[in-house]
Amino acid sequence: MTIQLGILLALLCALAANLGFFYKHRGCNEVPTVDVRHPLRTAANLWRSKWFALGMLLGLVGWVLHVGAIALAPLSTVQVVLSGGVVLIAVMADRIFGFAVERRQWWGLGLTGVGLAALAFTMPGGHGADGFSLQAMVAFQGGLIGLGALLLLGPRAGAKREHHGIMLAAATGILFGVCNIAVKALTELVGFDGIGALLSPWLLVAVCASATAFYASARSLQDGGAVEVIAITGTAANISCIAGGIIVFGDPMPGDAVGIAVSALAFLMVIVASALTPAPIRSTAAAASGQGRAVAATA
């Protein structure tokens, strides 16, 4: 019953988080361009937007539901359930917010949903071992932070500038993964050490990753389209956490050849879907609009 409650909380989290992202997208495109060189002014501009504030409130609700879910169920199981929420993105975009969802994006989101559903069916039930491996935690989190930093550099690392929004979305998802894995570690430590576990360095890791993701997410929502940015952010976070659940917390893996093959195919489907989900490079008119926003920001 405990795991089932965790799964229910994860479903509600997916709904709140995706809805919040769409409101944040609307708010981010009403304010000057995000500039991390001026973090306080940028944060103030974002919070002055009622749509961004509403999106953040829904995101907070989703985060609380997520913490409750990972405290009750294995991290990998929770993230697989959350991943199923990716199919809600196209429906919300098309039916609620009026975005034009292209056919390739429907295919991309559909493939993502099928791939992650396949992972859900092949993942054995139950928890892994109590606690977690400190060595695995440090190595895995360090790897994620390094990958996220590389994606944050974007054009400075040689990537095309028109892909910056997508790269920021992937970096945001990875940083959310870092935060969620750190929070899961804190829930494990609280079970052993009580409230004193909050003095753990993993709290600092969670806070720093979350703060960095805040700015990266806002800029990605300005530089990229809503559907692809939200989908890639969620997928990157989910894959990071599924892998973290298995590697760090010992969540069970399929034990037979068929299960392993299906899991491998499911991951491949998600990778292919990630390539399909982004829309073609923005039109000249959209690019001009983005340049106009940048000029307004410097005025």
Rank of each mutant, 00 (worst) to 15 (best):
G165L: 06
G62Y: 10
L168E: 11
A90K: 01
A169G: 14
I174S: 05
L175M: 14
A149T: 14
G59E: 09
I174C: 05
W63Y: 13
C179S: 14
L175H: 09
H127M: 14
G173P: 02
G68F: 01
L72H: 06
A139L: 12
G165N: 06
T122I: 03
G158T: 09
L175S: 13
A100T: 05
G142N: 07
Q105G: 06
G85E: 01
H163K: 08
R161E: 15
H163W: 12
L153D: 03
M123Y: 11
L116F: 13
G59P: 09
V138S: 01
L151C: 09
L153T: 07
F140S: 04
K160W: 08
F97P: 05
A71P: 00
V80H: 01
W107C: 11
V91T: 07
G131N: 05
H164L: 12
V86I: 13
I70T: 15
T172M: 09
A136R: 14
L134C: 00
G131F: 09
R161G: 12
I174Q: 04
R95C: 10
A90R: 01
N180A: 12
A171M: 06
M167T: 01
G115N: 02
F140T: 05
G128D: 11
G142P: 04
T172G: 13
C179K: 09
G59N: 12
R104S: 10
L175F: 13
W107I: 12
H127L: 11
S133H: 10
S133E: 12
I181W: 07
E162V: 15
G131R: 06
V101M: 04
L175I: 02
A100D: 04
G68K: 03
H164K: 11
Q105F: 04
R95N: 05
A139P: 00
V91I: 13
A171T: 07
M137S: 10
G84M: 10
L119F: 02
L153H: 02
R103D: 04
